[in-house]
């Protein structure tokens, strides 16, 4: 790992000025950044440690909102009674992520800024194959190679990577907003709009492989704000190769509001199928007023799945994602 300077500002104002240095990077838990630095994915000259900013790890109710500070660890979020009561899918997603040790260190702010687990991306420099994320213009070895981890929605010829975060999918399903702080103030952004698919990035004139989210330089995720919906129940389903401590093949978060067995409101987000959480908007609308039954879910969710474009290795995800979505909705409504 190359040398860097290290500062631990006491207050957020200090963090913003330190982050104005060129090649500066934020560290909190560090469970992702340190691996980037070992692999050559990131080579910051300066680390700004925000892990001790006062109040940034708190979880509390604020009016009609559950506020989750970005420095809360995954275990803290996963085992917090307020999260269990108001955002169950998020708590489940946190506890299904990583291992007990990593969850004691990793923060929910940093977790959504993980980068893809694509094996062609996550290797030690120098790479001897193409990866447009690592070396823009070098091509995408995954599209012609082992594509079983590839996206099935929103990917382009430049990159077919997925986003690996579990909590991100739950936050997207729960209509959470991210509270973003920077030297110029505070703004809110729906978590659903925080990340970009490759197709979206290119449509906005950005590079499809490297433009992954809408955070501005020097901007920090300070908290997530989850609207309270007392009539809704949510759950999170993770499908993976082994039962624990593994990244997902496909995940599904669902939030259901039932009135006498009839769906009053429904939200479904899929994970590991795109570089962003993938909401099933058609099914969410079509199923309102329907009874909670597998047959009607299947028909509605199939319409969202028509948009999927698969590679030879990723074709299995189309059916797996559909079935995961159905199971998650049925479990949330059970």
């Amino acid at each position: 790992m190359k040398r860097f300077t290290y500062d631990r500002p006491q207050l957020e104002g200090g963090a913003f000025s330190l982050l104005e240095q060129p090649e500066a990077s934020v560290i909190a838990g560090g469970t992702e950044l340190l691996n980037w630095m070992r692999l050559g994915i990131a080579e910051p000259d300066h680390l700004v440690d925000i892990a001790r900013l006062p109040g940034w790890g708190e979880i509390a109710l604020d009016g009609e909102t559950l506020r989750i500070g970005a420095l809360a660890t995954l275990n803290k979020v996963g085992e917090h009674p307020l999260v269990d009561a108001h955002a169950r899918a998020l708590g489940e997603a946190c506890l299904l992520a990583a291992s007990a040790q990593l969850r004691n260190r990793a923060t929910i702010g940093g977790n959504v800024l993980q980068r893809t687990r694509c094996v062609y991306f996550r290797a030690e420099a120098p790479l001897t194959w193409g990866c447009n994320k690592r070396q823009p213009g070098s091509g995408c070895a995954a599209i012609a190679g082992h594509s079983d981890d590839a996206a099935i929605f929103g990917w382009s010829e430049s990159c077919a990577a997925t986003h690996p975060s579990d909590p991100l999918v739950a936050l997207a399903c729960l209509d959470a907003e991210a509270e973003l702080h920077s030297a110029s103030g505070v703004r809110r952004l729906p978590v659903c709009d925080l990340h970009l698919s490759q197709v979206e990035a290119e449509a906005e004139g950005e590079d499809g492989a490297t433009a992954e989210n809408r955070l501005e330089r020097g901007e920090l995720i300070a908290a997530y704000l989850i609207p309270l919906r007392p009539a809704s129940r949510s759950t999170y389903l993770k499908v993976r190769d082994r039962q624990s401590f593994a990244y997902s093949r496909v995940t599904a978060a669902a939030s259901v509001e039932l009135e006498d067995g009839v769906i009053g409101a429904l939200r479904i987000a899929l994970g590991s199928v795109a570089q962003r959480p993938w909401r099933l908007g058609r099914a969410e609308q079509a199923l309102v007023g329907e009874r909670l039954e597998e047959a009607s879910l299947l028909a509605a969710i199939e319409r969202d799945m028509e948009e999927a474009r698969t590679l030879p290795g990723s074709d299995y995800k189309r059916r797996l994602a559909r079935n995961a979505a159905i199971r998650a909705v049925m479990a949330a409504g059970a």
Binding site: Y6, R8, G30, D49, S99, Q101, L102, R105
Partner: peptide
Amino acid sequence: NEGACGSCTVLVDGRRMNACMILVVQ
């Protein structure tokens, strides 16, 4: 040395963590 195996697990302020994923300055 990448947080995957757990053989470096220690307690930091009573909580188990992977020592490979922590800087001493932290």
